[in-house]
Design a protein around this nucleic acid. Sequence first.
RNA 1: GCGCCCGUAGCUCAGCUGGAUAGAGUGCUUGACUACGAAUCAAGAGGUCGCAGGUUCGAAUCCUGCCGGGCGCGCCA
Length: 576
Amino acid sequence: MGFSRQLRGIVEDAYLRAAQAEGWPGDVPDFAVERPKDTKMGDYATNIALQLARPLRRAPREIAERIAREVHAGEDFAAAEVAGAGFLNFRLTQAFHPRVLRALQDDSQGYLSSDIGRGERILLEFVSANPTGPLNVVSARAAAIGDTLGRLLRLTGHDVFTEYYVNDAGSQVENLALSILVRMQLPDGPREIPEDGYHGEYVTDLAKRFLSQAPASFSGMPREQQLSLLKAWAMAEMGRMRLATLEAYGVHFDNFFSEAAFRAGSGVDELLATFARRGILEGKEPGRRVVERAQHEEATPLLEDRDGARWLRTDLLGDDKDRVLVRSDGNYTYFLPDIGYHHGKYQRGYTRVIDLLGPDHHGYVARMRAAMEALGHAPESFQVLIVQWVRFLRGGVPQNMSKRAGETVTIDELLSDVGRDAARYFFLMRSHDTPLDFDLQLAQEESSENPVYYVQYAHARIASIRRQAGGEASTGGLSSAGADFSLLTAPEEVEILRRLGQLPEEIEEAAKALEPHRIPRMATELAQAFHSFYNKNRVLGVDPPLSAARLALAVAVGSALRELLTLLGVDAPDRM
RNA sequence: GCGCCCGUAGCUCAGCUGGAUAGAGUGCUUGACUACGAAUCAAGAGGUCGCAGGUUCGAAUCCUGCCGGGCGCGCCA
């Protein structure tokens, strides 16, 4: 159990005892437990007395004093101090030090993991970029965030399945095939790339590659047959390229979900039938219910035919307006199969559906959530993280990223110019909600200043110490197994231990908030604490018991850093 | 016009379910290697938290309005 939760219990108990004695309300008020930035204010603080000031009509400090008297400090906490306007500050004792260090030594992953996600099955979809071109750097941010978010949720006990939706059923694939055919320059072939076609160099490459392995009969085939062959081949080829890029970038998907395959399996008509059976009951209570119309005649039908088209009444479910599912020409809009895909996620057994989308799709959130509600899924179980754009610059000049014109910077280029570790760390440091600038030229020139190397350097330093300790360990005395951790009293040592001790709950909080960008900060701050310690204190060659204790500390930091870097999909090198 | 996101140090960004003196990296100034890796450490300068109101013991954080930037608002995908 994290210290915050433990402390919360201590504070609640203390309040209840004080309340009993003073005749205060028996309900524990809302209060916050936080980690003050300044350790002079203790390791943890609570504002409970400030929250009580108004209802109790008494001075916050007075209330704080009263509660403080009832605090029976636990093994991990010393007694409370009243400070400032009426805060209760708590200081950690050293009781947890051996626990933390041993846990990190025995099972560092287990130390950081938790089971707060127990019972939740999450379908996490991200990237899902059009399959008609190489993955470009616009997707790099979402790929890193989604991948690390998946790892974070797994570490905290969620059952996570990551998925990439391959939009391979649209007319864009048709255009790609046609563009490739043009680039083949067959005698009877088309000469002009269509208006919505693709001009990138990779199209020419694809054409050459296809020709080198195409059956001799290809050029004599009817156009339609050529295109259908090309489409299938191009999708497979793009899939292979995509997989190779993602692997180099350290991003793993459990599944690539083909829209074309999904459409072939229908399900869409069934969906329409379900919508047709249902209606919306607008109750007097705030809120509404989706019901079977057979049981509720007064319910407003979910589907409405208007102007020859068939609409879903999403406006009654939180959207701005209704949305067309079936056009007046009888064709489905893209929205319908998309609903089917998301509905399918729930049918596959997932209880929570998380999508990472670009800001150009934020308008889509309300309507999809409405559709999910119409199908009986709890609207809040469908969560969307909008990953804001990265504006890519080169020497201060914004870069165009048109896929059709072939002006994109690919992830492959990013990897060869900047490197996986620096690129991932850069994206993962920032909140997904912040638009940010990324200068490719600066990143190249200054990649050695990326904070990722600061963290990796700490890890490599520790590995180096271990190598040297290994030599000394043969003479005995430096095994950290029986080390006396009470010798770790220097401020730098205490600071490291405090950070290590708080790590699990910080990980939990990051997972709950779906904010992987907190992880790089944890890593940087831990590395900083270690570098600072290292420059002031020697690990090896001091009094053997102290040396053993410090070695254990260093090993623990190394393990923790490795776990954090692993979450980020970044290497934890032993040498650099 | 309506909706969503953003505006914090020269630059890139944290901090936002209200909390104590607003932080980090980078850049700038100064200092530290004859013992474990100087890709490091220590110290300093650098701010009307876009602007104006409001809520309250307390606002970068919540509310309203305005300014600036991005994106969206199709029987397109």
